[in-house]
């Protein structure tokens, strides 16, 4: 009994490392890719000095951050000041337990996967609020206030977009959600078509949840310097950075899994040989496209005004979401959208 339990424990630990280590490396490469893409969009070169094509730039930056001094502001609440980065990075990593990478390739194939996702993403806001409060700085507090209001508002729309997916898929399990999008009509069997407005609501809310441009008022360099993490330096700052980029990659995984068929081929059922077969490479391709589109948004759009963000969330997205839950229910009840084959 003892050995088998220890074996399961060790295996699970190995699987966790198998997800977490590539994730952290992916974050580093994503930062590099972001700087490259935005550089090209600005007609610049982007990082190109460290390593071939500047590939090692991100690692150089990480090393720099880790050996920098960690500064504590005067009269800051020491305990909370150091707890805040942990509170933002732990949920950002824990949520990867339920993200499937291929059919059956998932750490925990939990029945309540979507609920676990909601629970973990709703915890991320604590890190930001506490960082803003414990820093004993006005800029940081302003950033934390904005971020708290924004993240709570957009969580509502995000949850409702998920509800629409659940209604159609009939399950809270991510693998089941992807398999529910299988069919013979190629990419037109995926949920983006019946849930088109919710797909946009989910994606835009996701961008707002991760505090990315054009919704990055929590940082807002031109108004409040760097918002909630203005007082953080060195490795404490690196943790916030890691959490933000891990959440961006998470959004790039979830949008394809929920709306774009996950690892299913866009040509499924069209008998095009290997092109019609499902596989992790399709998910990888979709994730790459979504992740790059986040960078595209950053390079293209100016920052939203704070009251406009609130208006968009509460007065535009939530009414659309409520209406579309009814539409999804009708689609499912009358069998207009069928799941599986």
């Amino acid at each position: 009994m003892m050995t088998s339990d220890a074996l399961i424990f060790g295996l699970t630990l190995g699987k966790i490392l198998l997800i977490a280590v590539p994730l952290i490396i992916a974050v580093a490469m994503y930062v590099w890719w972001e700087r490259k893409v935005i550089g090209w969009m600005h007609v610049r070169m982007g990082p190109n000095k460290v390593g071939p094509w500047g590939l090692l730039q991100a690692f150089a930056d990480v090393t720099k951050l880790l050996i920098k001094e960690v500064i504590i502001p005067t009269n800051a609440n020491r305990f909370l000041y150091f707890t805040a980065p942990l509170l933002s990075v732990i949920p950002a990593l824990a949520v990867w337990a339920i993200v499937p990478f291929d059919n059956g390739v998932v750490l925990s194939n939990a029945n309540a996967g979507v609920l676990f996702l909601l629970a973990m993403t709703s915890l991320g806001v604590y890190g930001i609020i506490l960082a803003g409060w414990a820093s004993n700085s006005r800029y940081a507090l302003l950033g934390a206030m904005r971020s708290a209001a924004q993240m709570i508002s957009y969580e509502v729309c995000m949850g409702m977009a998920l509800v629409c997916v659940l209604v159609l898929a009939g399950s809270l399990n991510f693998t089941a959600i992807v398999n529910a999008q299988a069919g013979t009509k190629g990419l037109f069997d995926w949920f983006w078509l019946p849930l088109l407005p919710m797909f946009f609501v989910y994606y835009i809310s996701g961008v707002a949840e991760t505090n990315r441009l054009p919704f990055d008022v929590a940082e807002g360099e031109s108004e409040i310097v760097a918002g909630f993490h203005v007082e953080y330096s060195g490795s404490a700052f690196a943790l916030f950075f890691l959490a933000e980029y891990a959440n961006m990659i998470l959004l790039s995984f979830l949008a394809p899994i929920l709306f774009m068929g996950g690892w299913l081929s866009p040509f499924q059922g069209w008998h095009l040989g290997w092109l019609s077969d499902p596989g992790w490479w399709w998910l990888g391709l979709k994730v790459f496209i979504f992740a790059t589109s986040l960078l595209w948004l950053r390079a293209t759009f100016p920052r939203y005004r704070y009251d406009q963000i609130m208006r968009l969330g509460w007065k535009v997205f939530i009414p659309i979401s409520i209406a579309w839950i009814f539409v999804a229910g009708i689609l499912r009840y009358f069998g207009i959208v069928t799941i599986g084959h």
């Binding site: 939990a110 609920l115 629970a119 709703s122 409060w133 934390a144």
Partner: peptide
């Protein structure tokens, strides 16, 4: 699991954030 996760989503994720917000 539903009750547990719903507790986290509703109370920890939303209600307590507002509490914290007000208390701060």
């Amino acid at each position: 699991e539903f009750l547990g996760l719903a507790l986290v989503v509703v109370y920890v994720g939303a209600v307590m954030v507002l509490f914290l917000f007000v208390v701060m």
